[in-house]
Structures are given as structure tokens and as C-alpha cells.
Design a protein around this nucleic acid. Sequence first.
DNA 1: GGCAAGTAGTTCGTACGCGAAATATTAGTC
DNA 2: GACTAATATTTCGCGTACGAACTACTTGCC
Lengths: 175, 175
Amino acid sequence: MTPLEPDIKNDVDQVIETIVYLYTESRRLTKELARRASLTGPQLTVVKLLESIEDLSLSELSERIRAQNSTVTGIIDRMEREGLVVRERSKEDRRVVKIRLTDKGAELAREIPVEPMEVFRQALSSLTKDEVRDLLRILAKLTKKAKTIIRRDIEAERPREAAADERPSRSRLQD
Amino acid sequence: MTPLEPDIKNDVDQVIETIVYLYTESRRLTKELARRASLTGPQLTVVKLLESIEDLSLSELSERIRAQNSTVTGIIDRMEREGLVVRERSKEDRRVVKIRLTDKGAELAREIPVEPMEVFRQALSSLTKDEVRDLLRILAKLTKKAKTIIRRDIEAERPREAAADERPSRSRLQD
DNA sequence: GGCAAGTAGTTCGTACGCGAAATATTAGTC
DNA sequence: GACTAATATTTCGCGTACGAACTACTTGCC
């Protein structure tokens, strides 16, 4: 591929810096807003998700908030302890656990008007339609390339010498 | 020409989705690459930072990797335990702790060619120069707006006059 | 000099966040 | 119907990640 020019390298770093900034600040603000309702960031996300969808399995929840099942188990544990949600085993498939808001959790959800990544949404509203389109197009191209790189890189786990053999080397992307 | 269309909301969500995807996948891959050197993601970041700069105080390190001092203390603890870095009290200011790579740490750094956020860098190289410029310009505008929102929102936390009343329960600690 | 205020780093408690292993249940095969 | 593979969730160990409280040291001020 075409190697980067020095000044482009600089722009690239700037782009990375910006994306990291936007992402981390957005998370931080979500956390701050959550704190006012005595919640954590992830808990707020779960509460708002369950408010709109209601009756999600733990796996579905994990997928939505981009976390592993083992992580979500802990989050739900603490929310259950606080009386915000309840676990219910599914009748059709007894392996599945459905998560629902309690009355207390639903009331809390109503009181909090925010959505996760709200900063993004508000900030994006300051862009023109064309800018949003451009942004989306470029980011889409970026994502496509990134997916290729990720796939290649995961498969190239043991490329150098055949000395390594202890790694099963399976790809695990959940997207 | 049409001022507002329903699919703009869709584009906005798409942009958010994409940025989150890029960020989280990039972190995941960094972590994966670090694992091959028996490191964690943050540890890899620290090693590569110290390779290029050498002699950073803990606070400077915290700032660079966008984490709190208390977080970095733990990371350095574990790296010191592994013999990758050493702590050294500064002569000029005995409160300051300088972090340096050991020979083992320096050698490890040399063996690892990656930098954090490497996926971004590689993926961005697939864009044209103009696209990178556009992306940078739009993201800069986005950041500016986001900063305004964040500042406004933080100020709203401590209302100078008693204008807050829609918040029912006072938030306590424990979050 | 002496002391109050500030700064650098650590400690502590809590909550993610992940991967590997364990458990429980369902589906597929003969 | 029993055996096996697959799926959903939990458990466990470890490493971040943060804010509040604490210690050690420095600076500012008199």
C-alpha cells in the first residue's frame, strides 16, 4: 500500500487523537450523568435499553452494549441487588435468562432523559447534512479497511516460525 | 435541498456506531498484540512510550495515557514486579517518581513493532489525502461542539440558583 | 524559622471488562 | 433412549479504572 507522507502522518495522529477524545469524553459524561441518579455508566445504559425494549436475554444485552457475558453478569448482579432489575428464566429455553426492569427501575428510567453517547448526537447535530454524509462515507471506508486488517492480523497469529504451537488461534469477533 | 429527513437520524447513529466500533476494535487488537509479548494493552502503551521518551514521571505518564494517577500506580506496580520498569525518586523534587525501562523492558520494546491504535493508522492509510483532510476538518468541528456541550453540562451540575427541582433523590456516594 | 496550602504519589473500596473453565440445558445423531 | 455437540449463563482470577482519603514533600507567606 501507499506509505504515509510525513505530514499525513501528522493528520492521521490528529484523527486518532480526536476519535479517542470524543469517545472517552462521551463515556465520561455518560458516567457523570449516571452518577446523579446513583448509577454507573453501564447501568444507565442497561436501564435505558430495557426501558425501550423490555425483556432482553443476557446474551442479547451483552451484544447490545458490546461486552462479554461474564461482564454483564456482574452488572446485572449489582443492579438486581439494588432492586432495579429482575432475572427470569425463559419458559421456552430454560438456559436463557430474561432481564426485566422492576417498577423502581422503570421509574428511574423515566426520570433520566439522557441516552448513551448523547454528546455525539448533540455534537453531530451541529454538522451540515453533507458533512454527516461525508463523515459517514469516510468512516465506512475506514471500517471496511479496519475489518480486513483485524481479520488478517488475527489469522496471522503464528506466522513467523512454526515454533509456537500452544495457541488454538480462533477468531472471536462478535460483530 | 430537503431540510430535515428521517434518515439523518439514521446516519448519525451510524456514525456513532462506527466510531465506537473503530475505537473498541482498535483497543481489542492492541490488547491481542500485547498478549503475544505477555503484556496487557496499557502495559504495551507504557513500554512504547518509555522507549521513545525515557524518564517520565508518574503524573506525566498518567497524562499521556489518559488515566488517573491511582490507575497508573497499579500498572507500574505490576510492571515493576515483572522487572520491566524501575521507580526512581527525583533528586530535585523528592515527591516525584521517575519511571524508566529496565534492560529487559527496553529489549521487549525493541521486539514489538506495534504502536497503540495501530489499526487506525493502517486503516487510515487506505484513505486519500483529501479524505483524511476532510475527516480531520469534520472531526475538529465535532470536537469543538462537543467541548461546548461538555462544558455546559458540567456547569449545570452545580446550579448557582436553586433551579434544580426535577431531580428527586439526592445522589449519594456508592456508585 | 514556622506553618498553611499545594502537589506527587500511594492506598483503599468498588465497578467494570475479559478469557477460561464450570454448570445447566437443549439439540442432533444413531 | 443414550451419547455427543452446541448454547446460555455463571464463576473465577486478574488487570484496569476511578474517586476519596492518606502520606510525604515542597512552596508561599509571615
